[in-house]
């Protein structure tokens, strides 16, 4: 079969990815420092030029790091902490665009054209081989 080689390759890779995706989920609890790192790496230092709060040494960043740390100790979830800051500083403070109605286009468009191109390509291939 003409498609034999690539099917093998694809199947192997997809298999691996699937298996280990499940393992990633079971990675378990990270230490508080890691959680602070994770959250503050997604936050913008408002007094710097395009730096994350994690990377920045500015007063503002130190302040926010403390606040985030305290909230993690108080067992607040990442979502709650982000919401807390977004309410006060706006979505501008988060580097990862939130999944709301305004940003739907941003998140879906790339994958949409990707999927469309894929479909188109398969179509064209089929046409060529018949």
């Amino acid at each position: 079969m003409k498609l034999h080689l690539s099917s093998n390759k694809l199947v192997l890779i997809i298999l691996y990815i699937l298996i280990f995706l499940f393992s990633t989920v079971a990675l378990g609890d990270a230490v508080i420092d890691d959680k602070v790192k994770k959250i503050t790496s997604n936050l913008r230092c408002m007094t710097c030029q395009n730096q994350t709060i994690y990377d920045s040494d500015a007063d503002f960043s130190k302040n926010i790091k403390q606040i985030v740390r305290q909230k993690i100790i108080d067992n607040q979830s990442e979502k709650e902490i982000i919401n807390f800051l977004v309410t006060r500083y706006g979505e501008y403070i988060v580097f990862k665009p939130q999944f709301n109605r305004r940003n739907i286009f941003l998140w879906t468009f790339p994958f949409l054209i990707f999927a469309l191109s894929f479909v188109f390509f398969i179509f064209r291939l089929k046409k060529n081989t018949t």
Partner: peptide
């Protein structure tokens, strides 16, 4: 919308 948002590394890493 007169609101400011950021598109940073997490977006590009997840898409590109």
């Amino acid at each position: 919308t007169n609101k400011r948002m950021s598109v940073g590394a997490p977006y590009y890493n997840s898409t590109v």
